[in-house]
Simulated assay, not measured.
Amino acid sequence: MEHVLVTGGAGFIGRFVCDELLRRGKKVRVLDSLIEQVHGPGERPTSFHGDVELIRADIRNGAAVEKALAGIDAVIHLAAEVGVGQSMYEVERYTSVNEVGTAVLFEKLLERPVRRVVTASSMSIYGEGLYEDADGRLLQEVARSGIGDGLRQWDPTDEQGRPLRPLPTPEWKRPNLASIYALGKYAQERATHIMTAPYGMEGVALRLFNVYGPGQALSNPYTGVLAIFASRLLNGQRPMIFEDGDQRRDFVHVRDVARAFADALDIPAAAGGTFNIGSGHDRSVREVATALAAAMGRDDLKPEIVGRARIGDIRHCFCDTAQAERALGFTAREDFSSRLAELAEWVASQTAEDRVDEARAELESRGLVA
């Protein structure tokens, strides 16, 4: 029985990953600091599987990481501070946890090498997704203009003012790091590839797109957008959407993501690879907010379109799944509509503190909303 360490395994994605590993006959240990912003004041998540061994400690604690690695055969590295907006002012915290924490993990892995390390990266490393101009040329480094000076040209254009067409973003697109969070996730994935092969280990990085599903921290205003919308709706408030709501994303269910991690841990062809994990379908943020409101029986709460942009936000980025399909045999299986209904049912049984206005005020006070 292979013994797997899941760092950050008590979080939203981590709990589903642990369940999938247990289902496949793995023995699972978790290292997680259980920070209050994500988990609240509890000692152990109530939905956490009883067969999982939990070590409550910070990923930067070398002694705790060394203890957690004892007898471990493989690692899934999820531990990270998550949130693009918050990363832009809690710079030391995000850099310390995401980059220094990963460094501590690999230093300890030099003493206790494992078969394979699979690290969670993020679609945020791309910045804007891949685009095509009117002449059919592919553009990798698109930047929007006019957002910060009072203009409202949300969609990027070419030098002649012609609109660009967003395309599914493949792994070969050059990174364009627009936030401290993106910088940290890129550092994590590069550290994984740099530090594994020379020491006889295998490394894999999964670039996750917008993950959704039951169990996300509803009171954390820096979590996934669907959880933020759900918190607003649960409290009788309209979902708040920056810009005009027509920005497009790829929403992938957490069960599909958990399956991708478990596959990436075992499939030989995954070794040394970096893979997008998404649904392969793009949806506008406005469309998703409206659909969730309907699923929660709150059609009356129409999205609040802010008409302003957060600094560092991108317009369009959605997933090219071809490489994950070829190497991992991965395709998303979960139906968006049915899983949205499941999410709505779960949210109805929860309580949540709506802190979205507070988070927006924090960003505005720091000049991060244009």
Rank of each mutant, 00 (worst) to 15 (best):
S121Y: 03
V84H: 05
P166F: 09
V84Y: 02
G150T: 09
P168W: 07
L164Y: 06
E90H: 08
G83E: 02
I125Y: 09
K67H: 12
K108R: 15
L78A: 09
G83V: 09
V118M: 10
D73H: 12
T157S: 04
S179H: 03
R93K: 13
G184W: 11
K185N: 02
M88E: 15
L110C: 11
E189R: 03
E159V: 14
G146P: 08
G150A: 14
V114Y: 07
E111L: 12
A80L: 07
E81N: 07
L177Q: 02
L138W: 06
Q86I: 12
T95L: 14
R115A: 13
K185R: 09
M88P: 00
Q140R: 14
A191I: 00
A197S: 08
T102P: 02
S124E: 10
A79F: 14
A134Y: 11
R174L: 05
M195T: 01
T119R: 00
E189K: 00
T157H: 07
V100L: 12
E141G: 09
A79R: 07
Y199Q: 07
G146E: 13
P163I: 11
R152G: 00
V65N: 00
V114N: 02
R190A: 05
G83W: 00
V114K: 04
V82E: 03
H193R: 10
L105D: 11
G184F: 12
D155S: 00
Q86L: 13
A134P: 01
Q86K: 15
L130I: 03
Q86T: 09
L109N: 06
E66A: 15
E132M: 14
V97E: 02
A178G: 02
E189L: 11
G127L: 08
Y199E: 04
V104L: 09
G101I: 03
L130N: 06
G83K: 05
D155A: 10
L110A: 14
M195D: 00
I147S: 09
M88N: 05
K67N: 12
G184C: 11
E111Q: 13
E128I: 06
A68T: 05
R112I: 04
I76H: 00
R116Q: 06
V75T: 07
P168S: 06
N98I: 06
E171Q: 08
Q140H: 13
G184Y: 12
M88F: 04
D149M: 13
G150Q: 12
R144S: 12
R162K: 11
G184M: 08
R162M: 05
G101N: 10
K67D: 12
G150H: 14
Q86S: 10
L151R: 15
L130F: 08
T192P: 01
E81Q: 14
W154I: 01
R152P: 03
E141T: 14
L151E: 15
P168T: 05
Y181P: 04
Y94C: 03
E159A: 15
V118F: 02
A134I: 13
R162P: 00
P175G: 04
A120M: 07
G101R: 10
V114S: 06
S96D: 13
E141Q: 15
I147Q: 14
G85R: 15
R115Q: 13
A103R: 14
G101D: 07
I125E: 04
T196C: 08
W154D: 03
R162V: 02
P166S: 06
I76V: 15
G148W: 13
Q153N: 10
P175Y: 07
A103W: 13
E66L: 12
L139K: 06
Y199N: 08
L130V: 02
E81V: 06
S145W: 15
I194G: 02
